[in-house]
Amino acid sequence: MTNYQTVRSNEDIYKAKAEVRRMRAAEPFERKLLALVRMQMMDYSIARSAGRTARKPWHSEDKNRVKIYASFQG
């Protein structure tokens, strides 16, 4: 099986990243809030696994919400 690899310049990569950033900025605010809570969850679990203290994510006491947030595909 042959793999084809596209050669991309740094400028192309930068443009693609900038486009993704603009798309993320244009998302509905509620979606961005969900992305934020997921970031908080990741940060908290990384900190805990490294033995550091960290602030708990929002709504962390509501286990149903935590499950829903974790299952969302961003």
């Binding site: 509620e30 829903i68 947030y69 299952s71």
Partner: peptide, 21 residues
Amino acid sequence: TKGGRPRMRAEELSQEIPPIL
């Protein structure tokens, strides 16, 4: 999805996600 675990789709967000703020 790539993985096997079912995940929520973007269009289902408004129905499934309780309001955060």
